[in-house]
Amino acid sequence: MTIVRQNTLNTTVSPSVSPPENLAEKYIEAERMHDVLLLLQNLINSEEATVKLILDCLYDVGSVNLINQKLRLKPLNRVMKLIARMSKPVFKTLALYWFKKNCPQLITNWLHTQVSFRKPLNTPQQVAIEVTELQPYSIPQRESLSQEIKNLRYQVRLLTVISITAIAILGVIATWLNSNP
């Protein structure tokens, strides 16, 4: 067993005793940041159509980029893009709910960090890390693990094909039912 010393940066500013003037300033600061939060919530509620359009654009760009990055097979890629277009209304509803619930606070916190002008202290701190030497797997264990990995990959591919086929069939049936009066 070996002990290795590693330097880390302490990113917290140590608290100090504040005079009453600083406490009043902190109270005013907290009150004003709460006002910013309320104003952002009001802005999001009054400009809901704009927020929906922004989320719509982000979904279009993000879904295509994610599908292109994760799926290299052309037929699978096309099917997933079709599914992504069909699931867009559900995404918009959920995204708008999440946006209204979380974004005003996230934006307020980010803005507060921008106007606080605090820099973290860069004092290195000694941290002891225990390093143990790993024993490699024996040859039979490696072969069985390799075979198990191959089996799992095959199962993942099979489940992916089954899932995509089922979703495609469900989409075709839904489209067919909607087109028949």
Rank of each mutant, 00 (worst) to 15 (best):
C103H: 02
R78E: 11
R78H: 11
P89G: 03
K92I: 15
F99M: 09
L82I: 11
L58T: 06
V61C: 12
F91W: 04
L71Q: 10
R78D: 12
N102P: 01
A84M: 07
R78K: 13
K81W: 10
T93S: 03
I83V: 12
M86P: 00
Q105D: 13
N102T: 10
R72K: 15
R85L: 12
L71E: 08
K81V: 12
L71I: 15
L106N: 10
L71N: 04
A95I: 01
K88S: 08
V90C: 04
K88A: 08
L66S: 13
K101V: 10
M86F: 09
L76P: 00
K81P: 06
K81G: 11
N109F: 07
V90I: 11
L58F: 06
A84C: 11
S87Q: 08
K70N: 06
G62Y: 04
L73T: 09
G62T: 02
I67P: 00
L82A: 13
K101R: 15
S63N: 07
V61K: 11
S63D: 03
Y59G: 00
V79Q: 14
V90Q: 04
L94I: 03
F91V: 05
G62K: 03
I83N: 01
V61L: 14
L71K: 03
V79P: 00
P75D: 11
Y97I: 09
L96F: 08
D60Q: 09
K101F: 13
W98G: 05
T93L: 05
I67L: 07
V64S: 05
V61D: 12
Y59E: 00
K81T: 13
L76C: 12
I83P: 00
A84Y: 00
N68Q: 09
M86N: 09
R72N: 15
S87W: 00
R85Y: 11
Q69V: 01
I67V: 13
A84G: 10
V79G: 07
L58C: 07
K81L: 15
M80Q: 08
R78F: 07
L96A: 05
P89Q: 04
A84H: 01
K88I: 07
P89Y: 03
L96N: 03
